[in-house]
Design a protein around this nucleic acid. Sequence first.
RNA 1: GGCGGCGUAGCCAAGUGGUAAGGCAGCGGAUUGCAAAUCCGCCAUUCAGCGGUUCGACUCCGCUCGCCGCCUCCA
Length: 479
Amino acid sequence: MIRLYDTLSRSKRDFEPLSPPFVGVYVCGPTVYGDSHLGHAKSYVSFDVLVRFLRYSGYRVRYVQNITDVGHLSDDADAGDDKIQRQARLERLEPMEIAEKYTRSYFDDMDRLGNLRPDISPRASGHIPEQIELVRTLIEKGHAYQSGGNVYFSVRSFPGYGRLSGRKPDELRAGARVEVQADKRDPLDFALWKEADGGHILKWRSPWGWGFPGWHLECSAMAMRYLGNTIDIHGGGLENAFPHHESEIAQSEAATGSTFARFWLHNNMVTIDGQKMGKSLGNARSLKEMFDRCDPMTIRLYILRSHYRSPLDFSDEGMASAASALARIRDLSSRLEPSAGGSDAADQPPFVHEALSAFTDRLADDLDTPGGVAVLFDYVRKCNQALEAGAEPGARSAMRSGLDMMAQNILGLTMQGTGSGAGGEETLLGLLAESRSIMRKARLFAEADRMRDILAEEGYSVKDLPGGESSIERISSAP
RNA sequence: GGCGGCGUAGCCAAGUGGUAAGGCAGCGGAUUGCAAAUCCGCCAUUCAGCGGUUCGACUCCGCUCGCCGCCUCCA
C-alpha cells in the first residue's frame, strides 16, 4: 500500500485511485519565459519518481503537466505584464517564439535529468475554448461575475476557500494589498478572464470581448479536460499552494460540484548555500549552467537524497558528495556489466529480493527517496561483497536486474556517464588504456604513472584491473 | 502580525513509543609495483534546550531558543 502526504488533510493517507488501475496525475508545469533552474529540477525529479513508482506498482498512470504560455502576469496576481510578452520584448521575438524556445529548453533539461516526458503537455494557449467554457459555467452558477471586459471569481461564494493553505478569507482580507483592482467586488476575488488592453498581443475573442485567461484557470480547465472532474493526484511547488492551488480548487469545485483532487502533493523549496533561491535575488542557477560543470545525474541523486517535502540546500560540498556517491553506484554497475547471462531464480542471492522489498517499502511511505537511497547503498555493498567472493553468472545477473530496477527504473539514475559525447573519444581512451597496460607489463611504471597523472588532471580516472588490463573513464566533463 | 515547516555525528540525511539506517569526508587494516575501485574494522551513551506523560521517548504533550518558507510573481 502506498501512502502519500496530502496537504489538504495534513496527513499521510493510503493511496487508492478513484478507478484502479488508472491514476490521473496533474503537476503544475513551468511558465516558459526563461531557462529552467534548480527549483524546477527538484520539483520535476520528485514527481517523476512518483510516476515511475506508481507505474512500477502496477498502476496505469496518465501524467499531465501543463506548459504555461499565456496569462501568467508578472506583478500582482491580477495586474502587470504577461511574463511571456515581457520576455518577448526583451529578446525582440514573438511571444510564441519565446514560449516555443523555452518549452524546448525545458524539455531538453528535463531529458538530461532523466525525467520521463509527461504523457500530455497541454499548452494554456491551446485550450482557450475549454477555459472560456469554464468561465461561462461559473458565471451561470453565480460564482463569477463580469466587470467590464474582466471576469472575476467570487471567493465569498465558495465556502471552502482557504482550506488547502490554512488561510481564512477574513484574515486574508485584513492583509490584502492596498491597491486592489477597482472593478472587483471583493479584494479577494481573482481574475478568470482579463480584458486585453492596447499592447496585448496574446489575446482571444470571448463572450466578454478580446482578452486572455487568468493564470489559475488553465490548470483547472486542462486537468479536467484530460483527467476528468476528479483527479487522483495534483502536485506542485509549495509556493503555489496559495493562491494558485487554492484558486484551482475553488473554481473547479464550484463549477462541477465534485472533489477536484483527492491528493495534494507539495514539493518543498530549494536554497543555495542556505539562502533562498529566487530570480529576484539573482542566485538562481540555471540547469544548463550547472550541466556544464557536472553530470546531470549528480544533481538527480543530490535531489533524491533528501525528501521531497524537505527544503533542499545546494552547496559545492554537497555536490562533491553526491558525485562520489553516484560513482559508487556506477562502479558497481560496470563491475556487473559482463554478467549479461540468463538469470535463473534459483541463482538469485536472497539479499536481492530483500533489498528490493525494503526499497519499495521506503518509496511506498510517502516517497521516502532518502530511505530508498540508503537501501540502495546497502545493496551496493552486498553486491560488491558477493563479487569479491566470486559470484556465479546467474547471481551476477540477478544482482544486475536488482540494481537496474532500483537505480534506473524507479530512481531514474542512468548508469553511463555523460563523458563519451565526442565521437572518437572512446576509441582513444581504449588505445590509451591498452598503452598503459603494455607499459605496466613491461614494468615501465614511471611512464605508465605519468600517463595516469596527466589523464587525472584532464578529468579522467584510470583503473588497473586484475589481470593487468586498464580502463579509463571520464569523471568530470570540464575540470 | 497570520499560516506552515524544520533543528539527528565534520557535512548531507532516514527513523517517529522499545532502546540511533545510509551516503560523503576522516582514521586503521586487506588488496595493489604505486594508485584507483573493492572488502573488513573504527567514527552520535545520543537525537537544539528545559519540563511533563510512560516500565520505557529522538519519537507523545507543554514551554523556550534558533533557522526557514508562504501570506505579491517564482518549481
